[in-house]
Amino acid sequence: MPEMSLTEARSRLADVIDEARVGHDPVFLTRRGRQVAAVIDADDLRQLLEAAEDLADIRAAQSAREEMAVSGESAVSLADLKAELGMA
């Protein structure tokens, strides 16, 4: 993964963006030798955010299943849920 200082990136912004966009490889920006930010292709970022949301949903579902198993609760059918919410 390429890395460059903020000063260099400032002077070559169009090149930095093109490198991230075309190469689909983030460009890490540094300040005093430490990575402080990254330039990443917008589509790549959207895919990462969607994947993170999917993973959060999977973890929440697993947690709910574990909680139900511990408490001894059973699942509610869709028909029962709709009836309870007045949607039947």
Rank of each mutant, 00 (worst) to 15 (best):
A61G: 12
E19A: 09
L29I: 00
E8H: 10
E8S: 12
V27T: 00
E8I: 11
I40K: 01
V36P: 12
D41H: 00
L13M: 14
E3H: 09
S77Y: 06
Q62H: 13
G23L: 11
S74K: 13
R31Q: 15
V76K: 04
A64Y: 02
D41P: 00
D41F: 00
V39R: 06
L85K: 05
I17P: 08
P26E: 12
A61N: 15
D41M: 02
R65L: 10
G86K: 00
D18L: 15
E19N: 04
E50N: 04
A20E: 01
E66R: 07
V27M: 03
M4D: 03
A69D: 03
E84A: 10
D25M: 13
I17H: 05
R12S: 06
A38S: 08
V22H: 14
V36Y: 10
D18T: 15
E50S: 04
I17C: 12
L85M: 03
D80P: 10
T30F: 02
S11M: 14
M1H: 14
A75E: 11
E67I: 03
I40E: 03
D57S: 08
G33S: 13
E53K: 00
R32Q: 15
A69Y: 03
R59F: 13
L29N: 00
A75F: 10
I40T: 04
L48K: 10
V70L: 05
D54C: 06
V36N: 06
E53A: 00
E73Y: 14
E66K: 07
G86E: 01
V22S: 15
L13R: 10
A52N: 14
L49W: 02
Q47E: 08
Q35K: 13
V36H: 06
R31H: 14
R46I: 13
A56R: 06
E66Y: 12
L6R: 09
V16R: 00
D25C: 13
R32D: 15
S71T: 00
R46Q: 08
L81C: 01
M68Q: 12
E73Q: 10
E3V: 11
Q35C: 08
R12F: 10
A60N: 11
D54S: 11
Q35H: 13
E84K: 09
A61H: 15
M4H: 06
G33N: 05
A20L: 01
V39H: 03
V16Y: 03
R12K: 13
L55K: 03
D41S: 04
D15M: 09
A52I: 02
A88V: 06
A64L: 09
A75M: 08
R46L: 10
A64E: 08
V36E: 11
T7A: 14
L45W: 09
A20T: 01
A38F: 08
D44Q: 07
M4R: 13
E73N: 06
D80R: 07
E73I: 06
R59H: 09
L78G: 05
E19S: 14
S71H: 01
L85Y: 04
D57P: 03
E73G: 02
R65C: 07
T30H: 03
D41T: 02
L85N: 01
S5T: 12
M87I: 01
E3R: 13
L45N: 04
V27W: 00
L81M: 05
Q47D: 14
L78C: 05
A51L: 08
L45T: 02
R21D: 11
G23Q: 08
D43P: 07
D25G: 14
